[in-house]
Amino acid sequence: MDLNIGAAFEALIDWLKTNFEGFFEVAATAIGSTTEGLEDVLLLLPSWVMILLFTALAWWVASRGVALFTLVGMGLLDSYEFALFGTEIAVGMGYWEITMETLALILSSTLLSLLIGIPLGIWAAKSDTVDAIIRPVLDFMQTMPAFVYLIPAVVLFGLGTVPGVIATFIFATPPCVRLTNLGIRQVSEEAIEAAQSFGSTPTQMLFKVELPMALPTILAGINQTVLLALSMVVIAALIGSGGLGDPVVQGIQQLQIATGFEGGLAIVILAIFLDRVTQAIGERAGSTAQAA
């Protein structure tokens, strides 16, 4: 007998497609409309208003330096045309719309990661069996080349944004699960005992003691998830998810150095903004939940 692993996996995907078509359709609709909704919201206001809002956010949660970076960096993503001494001048990369597309994709895949990753992390923290089962699955999700699970994602969800979100979700969820698990396991034994000794129910224990004390670690996991999601942008563009991956892919295919570089730079700007802001949120939580 010829045992073909690849063929077996293909058969599994085919089987999933025929038997769970309804489920995948509902999932695709939910993910698709969430992403589109986020995109609409992000593009609702004129770009300069959004840039000022992002700058204000950076100033509020992080620092003046991050705010300044946001103002200049995001400004570069937009485009401006004006006349100076009779000369028409155009600056900026003009990527505002696709940047917001990418941001929407990242936000919706991160949302999905948190929705599934945090409960899974809590479960793994509570049960060593679950932990032992989840660990290799997470390793698999992180080390399997991302291109490979694009294929089944396309088969199950079709081309477009949705398989992009799914592929991003697979790649970006592991740190969220791992760090939620770690954060809860790190809560001091004495705090747990204290909460128990005052008659906490398991739910009270989770929400009043374990999750708040694990919050800084969980937020570090969310930061990682966001950054990993951003690193999937180019790959997602290959299956038609759009966004900032498009100019990079175009640059490679047509050997356009300029386009490729601009796309890459835009991703870096967005990455730094997201990293600094999510990190600052984590540090804030950390300073209030610092171990005594």
């Binding site: 004495e190 204290a194 000794s197 005052f198 003691v209 004390m213 610092q290 005594a292």
Partner: peptide, 16 residues
């Protein structure tokens, strides 16, 4: 909750 409570060696306070 009503009859017994406990004090811990390393205090066991909730830092958050």
């Amino acid at each position: 909750r009503t009859k017994m409570s406990m004090v811990f060696q390393n205090f066991g306070l909730f830092p958050h």
